[in-house]
Design a protein around this nucleic acid. Sequence first.
DNA 1: ATGAAAGCGCTAACAA
DNA 2: TTGTTAGCGCTTTCAT
Lengths: 367, 367
Amino acid sequence: MKKIAVGNKRLRQKQVPPPAASRRGQAKPHTTLKRIADQLDVSMSTVSRVLSGQARRHRISTQTETAVSNLARQFNFVPNQLARGLRLKKTLTIGLVIPDLSNPFFAGIAHQVALGARQHDYSVLLCDSHENIDLEVQALGLLRHRHVEGLVLCPVGTSAAHLEDLVQAQLPIVLVDRYFPDLSLPYVAADNLTGAHEGTELLIGNGHRCIACLQGVRGTSPNEFRVRGYQQALARHRLPVDASLIVGDSFGEQSGYIETKLLLRNRKDVTAIFAFSNLLALGALRALAEEHRRIPDDISIIAFDDQPYAAYLATPMTTVAQPFSEMGDVAVKLLFDQIQSPEREPTGGILLPTNLIIRRSVKKITC
Amino acid sequence: MKKIAVGNKRLRQKQVPPPAASRRGQAKPHTTLKRIADQLDVSMSTVSRVLSGQARRHRISTQTETAVSNLARQFNFVPNQLARGLRLKKTLTIGLVIPDLSNPFFAGIAHQVALGARQHDYSVLLCDSHENIDLEVQALGLLRHRHVEGLVLCPVGTSAAHLEDLVQAQLPIVLVDRYFPDLSLPYVAADNLTGAHEGTELLIGNGHRCIACLQGVRGTSPNEFRVRGYQQALARHRLPVDASLIVGDSFGEQSGYIETKLLLRNRKDVTAIFAFSNLLALGALRALAEEHRRIPDDISIIAFDDQPYAAYLATPMTTVAQPFSEMGDVAVKLLFDQIQSPEREPTGGILLPTNLIIRRSVKKITC
DNA sequence: ATGAAAGCGCTAACAA
DNA sequence: TTGTTAGCGCTTTCAT
């Protein structure tokens, strides 16, 4: 086959002393462009060009090219993304801020976002705000420092004041699950209004007239829309809306437990409970079990968030499923739309339909 | 109060033209050290020193100091961590590689790692390997490029070959859940051997003699130790070990479903099932429901991983709980031990005890 | 008490 | 076909 001149002096490797600091305990320094360049006696530009696939465009000789890429492989060379990012002003990184990764709903979203980002060759900086606004603010600052190119955020607060800066800086943002209806920030969320409406109607259709709500964090958009959907359904059927039937202020299990206990004691007329999260439902289950109430004979229950176990509970639970995977997917899409065409006005917001899954936790009763 | 001379010419702000590129659609460029320095007519060094809290040490005048920090605040200055990282060779970032964030067990670990890292003022680069070795390898490469200072990893493969490079490069690593017993890589995992042993003994103590195992991915350490624990318990009671009773090759729900279906058809003598993950158990539940087998009357079941819902299942499930929060905590600790004192030999590995939670899915039978 | 300058590793004009 | 150079934003000697 074609023989390649090998005697070329310029490509014979020079003896370059290895970097000194290789004593025990010292981290081995990364190979750099320069080291490769020196060893091969070519310029850094050449190496850079070859290694970033621009050999063709710059008509670099095959000889040089192979020599460079061989040595790079041999050295196990990895370009320093910090230097690269600094120079190019691109970090290929997005930030993901989640209130509680141990909540399967958010974990599902995070899972999808991580996968999507990867497909765009982006990395994900993860921050768990622990449902705490201060930690969220801190996380946002941190992500700015690190020059993320975009942000997927499930905000914990009821105000968007702390997002001002980021918007001003024109950082692409997508809100997930929770959003601010009066702001023009792009978001993706479940259609909580309709979901809650349908759930409530199911209850009403089964003869329930006195329905309690285990609500989540007040002021957050999912909660407010769910409350509204519930109220609208009642109103539509000319049923009275009793504000004292809407209880709680957290999406957590504890809240579900306590509020249910209280309800059981104070409102003997309640025939059904609508739990606004899977954790809330679990808490209700605990309280119900303690008080020896059977589902659905003594009391009916329906919950937001479908989870794999819902079908196998003592009483398979009727749920309003949220498409969390799709929410993650859409979030990624909306974000990269912005990143890739910053000049275009970002989409307003997207609402995904919920899905009412009927199981056996709702009983038909006669008024 | 104390009046501060304000007429000092040097600190009167100069009129510096704002950076040009502020047209619509252009990302506003970040404020830099230099901009602040120019405006105040001081040197970058001074600004740098003030902003990194070294004003005292360099005896910078209070006047300059306040002027600088005021302007910095006013400009909403954030130091560029890329530049900083490049200069200091510190990224303050760790990598987290998880096989499947939508699995609550891993999500719990991730949650804890994120929190722990934050406490050390480190950020977390998240990669979801999707239980896929190629994606894991890719993730590892990516994290190296980005110069993470450490790695928390739940490896998906059965070999550690792809970790060689990282170890060689002296990158601090901690393995979680899955590890390689014959390698000296630090790890934290549940004591799967004992956990499985105890679970099996419970079954045996209740008179079960023909116990099937729904196992996870073969070759992974959790699975192998669980199998071994199961076998040891049988042996200890002089019960025969029937290899055909150990079925499956994935920790997922599907596998639990299919293998249980098969078991039900082919091994009528099975009186108990030991599921090696919560997902596997869910799959088994589905199969059992389809085949109209009641738990524990027709068949007993016990599962690895305790989850909040376990107590509220149709039959509250007896489980071997893994301390996933602690696993995350310990992982963080082991990692930062290494990061902070690279010269010290890293700890070998840490096994955390499991916890047998007895509910009602195991029935006492008479042999 | 403050500044000048070098340099971290990389890329991209501009030269040749 | 390849090299020279400037510079991304920051920190840190070494001067003064």
